[in-house]
């Protein structure tokens, strides 16, 4: 089986800055769930931004293969259409743009890429209803402008809802658990668990072990100062819970 994502010695920085990622190696296969943990400032969001193609970042060394192809040459929208999905740590509020209108445009762009027919308003609504019941999201959220006036928890749920609609091959969840109370965390985790699929890889970025109680990863990696300093199974996360990141960082 081919690898979905291969990260080779990836060094990256904000344009003009100094390297934030300092040599990341990581291989992810379809069907796997990976957790990337690490202290604040380790470079977790930078890694997700680089993978999603956020402007303003540059790769200074190394490279990334997605489905066997160089990722660097693709713009952020092309990556999304080819199945990479980033659930934002801070989802952006977009006033005046209706959530449903936006999501239908996104879904149709992705479907077009996959060679599927675009959905009209009625078909789209049907698809939305099916996923809503899966995720326990109030329909009311969809009538509002994208993320505008959403609570922290609603924003995160909306991200997972978008993921459910777009059915990506690679989902990167950047601190989807942060700022959630326990009920919201459960709802989001349930949503993610239902989206686990043999054809889909999920990368969960978090700095709390808490999320992993609800979504059990196949692999856990520790990112510290721009490098993966430890990898293991879920027992690594438990270990971290007890002993903290400090000893790993110094070991690196």
């Amino acid at each position: 089986m081919t690898n979905l994502l291969e990260i080779h010695d990836l060094h990256a920085r904000i344009v003009g800055g100094r390297d934030i990622l300092k040599g990341i190696n990581l291989t992810i296969k379809a069907g796997e769930v990976h957790a990337i943990m690490g202290p604040n400032g380790a470079g977790k969001s930078t890694l997700s931004s680089v993978l999603a193609g956020k402007p303003g970042y540059e790769v200074t060394l190394g490279h990334v293969l997605y489905q066997g192809h160089e990722l660097a040459s693709l713009g952020p929208d092309e990556r999304a259409r080819q199945g990479i999905f980033l659930a934002f740590q801070y989802p952006v509020e977009i006033s005046g743009v209706n959530n449903m209108y936006f999501l239908r445009a996104a879904l149709n762009a992705v479907r077009k890429q996959r060679g599927e027919a675009e959905l009209d308003a009625a078909q789209f609504l049907k698809a939305v209803k099916a996923k809503l019941s899966l995720l326990d999201i109030s329909e009311d959220l969809l009538k509002r402008a994208v993320n505008v006036g959403f609570s922290g928890g609603e924003k995160k749920r909306n991200e997972i809802f978008q993921m459910a609609m777009l059915e990506p091959a690679l989902a990167i969840l950047d601190e989807t658990d942060s700022g959630l109370d326990i009920d919201a965390l459960r709802a989001v985790a349930n949503g993610v668990n239902r989206l686990r699929d043999p054809g889909r890889a999920i990368v969960m970025i978090t700095h709390y072990q808490r999320l992993l109680d609800y979504i059990e990863p196949d692999f856990v990696h520790v990112l510290s100062d721009g490098k993966i300093v430890a990898s293991g199974d879920k027992t690594l996360a438990m270990d971290l819970e007890e002993r903290g990141y400090a000893h790993l960082a110094s070991a690196a």
Binding site: A52, G53, K54, P55, G75, P76, D77, R79, A80, R81, F85, L86, F88, P91, V92, E93, I94, F102, L103, A105, A106, L107, A109, V110, Q113, V146, Q162, L166
Partner: peptide
């Protein structure tokens, strides 16, 4: 906001 929309597959 532009990046957010693009990250969902919408062209620039």
């Amino acid at each position: 906001a532009l990046f957010y929309l693009q990250a969902r597959g919408i062209d620039a």
